[in-house]
Amino acid sequence: MFNPPYKKKNYIDLSGAKKNHPSFDSREGNFSCPSCSAWLSEAQKIQNNDFCPRCSYYFTTTAWERIYSISDENSFEEWDANLSTLNPLEFPGYEDKLAKAKEETVLSEAIITGTASIGGFKTVLAAMDARFMMGSMGSVVGEKICRAMEKAIFNSLPFIIFCCSGGARMQEGMLSLMQMAKTSAAVGRLNDAGLLYISILTHPTTGGVTASFASLADIIIAEPGALIGFTGPRVIQQTLGEKLPPGFQRSEYLLQHGMIDIVQPRLEMRSLLIRLLNVHQGGNHA
């Protein structure tokens, strides 16, 4: 079975957590919840499905975990894994960043695409991974999404994507920005073919990804508490000095403002997708 490459990094703040929560024994746990700083051991974290038992915060999960958590066993077949990123603008430091991301994540880019069945329904499935340069969209991410959508059209399959991204990738400049237009145009073809498109927005989905394919789905689902928006809250606060309302840009807030269809807990995602696929196909599935 799949063994995720966990790493102790970024989201661990030893000193702060110790101070705030003396009741949690730091010798036992090696993960601190970024939201409430509670301590969990690796075993606890896996047992809880990357979910903080204290404050219900969702730990960042990986693209592979998402794929395995919703698809039928051994049904996923990966596509276009060999597409690799270049440095077309010769942007300083890009190669180093890519190499580091590849080494840390054991991924070739910020997205995995392929085909899988979910509860017996055949689908095209894609999942982005925030650990790879913040899940940012450059040429390869855009290309893999378009190819997957085109294969969905060719095979008449529903298209499902887990979004998770900081937006367009700075290091590929305009080529990244144009991926927004490119993926949106591919959604247009998916629509013309009359195929179901479900996008699942997870923490965080911002910038050029939210403003392109992610928000163009027939059904938009979000995980609880996920940050979803165009401009990130830090930039809004910095540029305008505006105080942000509580819960701003979180899933529940977007549901209230009419931007998404459903807020669905991670553990119940698979069952919801199966129900949606079933209804979409007329409810005749055995």
């Binding site: 237009a181 403003a211 401009t231």
Partner: peptide, 26 residues
């Protein structure tokens, strides 16, 4: 660029942009 403000976000800035991209592409 797009306006980095709370109201623009509340009223679905990202949705408005993506729909325009889709519309123009077809």
């Amino acid at each position: 660029g797009a306006y980095p403000g709370t109201q623009a976000e509340e009223r679905g800035q990202a949705w408005a942009i993506s729909q325009l991209l889709l519309c123009l592409s077809k």
